[in-house]
Simulated assay, not measured.
Amino acid sequence: MKLGYHIGYWSAGPPEGARETILEAERLGFDSVWTAEAYGSDAFTPLAWWGASTSRIKLGTNIVQMSARTPVATAMSALTLDHLSGGRFILGLGASGPQVVEGWYGQPYPRPLERTREYIDIVRQVLARKGPVTYDGKHYQLPYQGGANLGKPLKSIVHPLREDIPIYLGAEGPKNISLAAEIADGWFPIFFSPKMESFYRERLAEGFARPGARRGWDDFEVAASVPLIVHDDVEAAADQIRPYLALYMGGMGAKQANFHHEVFVRMGYESVANTVQELYLDGRKDEATAKIPTELVEDVALIGPAAKIRDELDRWRETCATTLLLQGDASRLRAAAEVVLG
Rank of each mutant, 00 (worst) to 15 (best):
P15K: 01
D82G: 01
N274E: 08
K130G: 14
S11D: 15
S41R: 13
L313K: 08
T323Q: 13
M267G: 05
R215K: 06
H83V: 11
G137P: 07
L333R: 00
D42A: 02
K130E: 15
L84S: 12
A95K: 03
A337F: 04
P305I: 06
L325K: 15
E172W: 06
L150W: 12
Y109R: 02
G207P: 01
A181V: 00
V101D: 09
E102Y: 10
G13Y: 12
A290R: 13
K291T: 04
A306H: 06
E16R: 03
I90F: 11
Y105H: 14
L245H: 04
R124Q: 03
V300K: 05
P108L: 05
A48Y: 13
L113I: 05
G60T: 00
H6C: 03
V340A: 14
P132E: 13
K152F: 11
M267K: 07
A307Q: 15
F44K: 04
P305C: 02
A36G: 02
S198F: 13
L28D: 11
R215D: 13
L228F: 04
E16Q: 02
P132M: 11
A18V: 07
G304D: 10
N62C: 10
Q240M: 09
K308L: 14
E287T: 08
V297F: 10
W34P: 02
V340N: 15
R203F: 07
R266H: 08
A12T: 14
E114A: 12
E26H: 02
G86D: 06
F188D: 09
A306I: 06
E26R: 01
A336I: 00
R117E: 10
L245F: 02
L154V: 13
R203G: 03
A12F: 13
V126G: 11
D311Q: 14
V64I: 12
A254R: 15
R27D: 07
S271H: 09
L333T: 00
D219T: 00
R210P: 06
A181S: 03
I309L: 06
A330I: 00
A306M: 09
L313H: 11
S331C: 01
H159K: 14
Y200L: 01
Y109N: 06
G173E: 07
A337V: 00
W49Y: 10
H260Y: 14
D164I: 00
H261G: 06
Q327A: 15
A68M: 05
Q65N: 07
G97Q: 12
G304F: 02
E163S: 11
Y9I: 03
E318C: 00
V133R: 09
I309K: 02
F191N: 09
Y269S: 10
Y140I: 02
R69D: 12
S77T: 08
A78K: 01
A180I: 08
D164Y: 03
K285M: 11
F44R: 04
Y269M: 11
A254D: 12
A213L: 01
V263Y: 11
I165K: 06
D121K: 04
K138F: 14
A273S: 09
G151V: 03
I309R: 05
L81M: 08
D185V: 01
L47T: 12
W217P: 01
T134L: 06
F89I: 03
G137E: 10
S156A: 15
D185F: 02
V265K: 01
A307T: 13
L296A: 04
G87Q: 11
G51T: 12
L93A: 09
F192K: 12
G97L: 13
K175F: 03
R129M: 07
E102M: 05
P211C: 09
R214C: 07
A36C: 05
D232C: 04
